[in-house]
């Protein structure tokens, strides 16, 4: 008996503990989560590794041949005889490669916007929950007002206003960062509200009182004790927020007010594809649209799964 006990008491590696956790079990047994995770992983990997995977570099003029333009998928081009998996666009760029590079930009903007919203929301939420008083009421007033507008409208308005403030010479180069800030600012409220609520609950608990009594700095208490306890819901919001941010970026780029034309994202590719719909070149539109949908939908489903998995009450 003693031997078995010793076996069980032995500290396991973190990898095993991760595999053995509730969340991992729920992931392994949920077909939706597995498929969504696989699709997200494929798109993310393809986007990150785009320069190594893509058969062509679509933004290197030396590799482009205008004669290759409008090649249908899987068919040899009438002039050059080249075959492209997903066809080519008007300038002879390989659609598959443009999608990989486009997904890279879409994901970059989405992830950065979520990170920005998350850092801003968590910071403001912690301050509001910890300090209370007028800071709290001011921040929550702003949050209420912002929540009554659709976030895509907020992002669009912030983007427009910010463009007004930036000198014309810098507009092109800064567009992508302005876009990130605009989408981030349109989405911080969710994080701030959740973190504020949780902070207010946690701060009256005994372990926080104990930390205060031994003289820990409030910053340390917030970072070491309270933050880890609010990360669960924040992760859920961030996952669903990533899907929303990707769609917001695609929408703005589609409207022609997002990323500059020199760095086309999936939304820009769909915008280009729409122009050639009437002349029958459907592949320029369809493949970027399917990629965008697959990415947004799978991330969204992952977020839904994570919410259920982290909430013991739903089980």
């Amino acid at each position: 008996m003693a031997k078995i006990d010793a076996e069980e008491m032995k500290p396991r590696s973190w990898l095993f503990r991760m595999w053995d956790s509730d969340v991992a079990y729920s992931f392994r047994t949920s077909p939706v989560a597995l498929i969504a995770g696989l699709v997200s992983l494929i798109v993310v990997l393809a986007a990150v590794l785009a320069p190594w995977i893509a058969p062509y570099n679509p933004y290197d003029p030396s590799q482009l041949n205008l004669m290759d333009g409008f090649t249908p998928p899987m068919e040899p081009n009438a002039f050059t005889g080249n075959v492209f998996w997903l066809g080519t666009d008007n300038q002879g760029r390989d659609v598959f490669s443009t999608i990989l590079y486009g997904a890279r930009i879409s994901l970059f903007v989405g992830v950065m916007a979520v990170l920005f919203a998350m850092v801003l929301g968590i910071t403001l939420g912690l301050i509001a929950g910890w300090r209370g008083g007028w800071i709290d009421s001011l921040l929550m007033r702003i949050a209420d007002v912002q929540l009554s507008f659709p976030s895509i409208l907020i992002a669009l308005l912030i983007f427009g206003v910010a463009r007004g403030f930036i000198p014309p010479a810098l507009r092109e180069t800064m567009a992508i960062w302005v876009l990130i800030v605009a989408i981030g600012l349109s989405d911080w409220v969710q994080y701030a509200r959740v973190v504020r609520g949780a902070t207010m609950v946690e701060k009256s608990k005994e372990y926080v009182q104990a930390a205060r009594v031994i003289g820990a700095h409030p910053f340390k208490i917030l970072a070491r004790h309270i933050l880890p306890n609010v990360m669960g819901p924040v992760l859920v919001i961030a996952t669903i927020g990533l899907a929303l941010a990707i769609i917001a970026e695609a929408t703005l780029s589609f409207l022609g007010v997002g990323v500059p034309p020199t760095q086309p994202s999936l939304g820009t590719l769909i915008r280009i594809g729409q122009q050639y719909l009437f002349s029958g070149e459907w592949w320029i539109l369809l493949f970027p649209a399917v990629t965008l949908l697959a990415l947004a939908l799978s991330v969204n489903l992952l977020g839904d799964w994570l919410r259920d998995a982290l909430n013991p009450r739903l089980r």
Partner: peptide
Amino acid sequence: SLPTFLIGVLLIW
């Protein structure tokens, strides 16, 4: 889950 602009483009198509 479909973005508005994509619904519009698909309807046009």
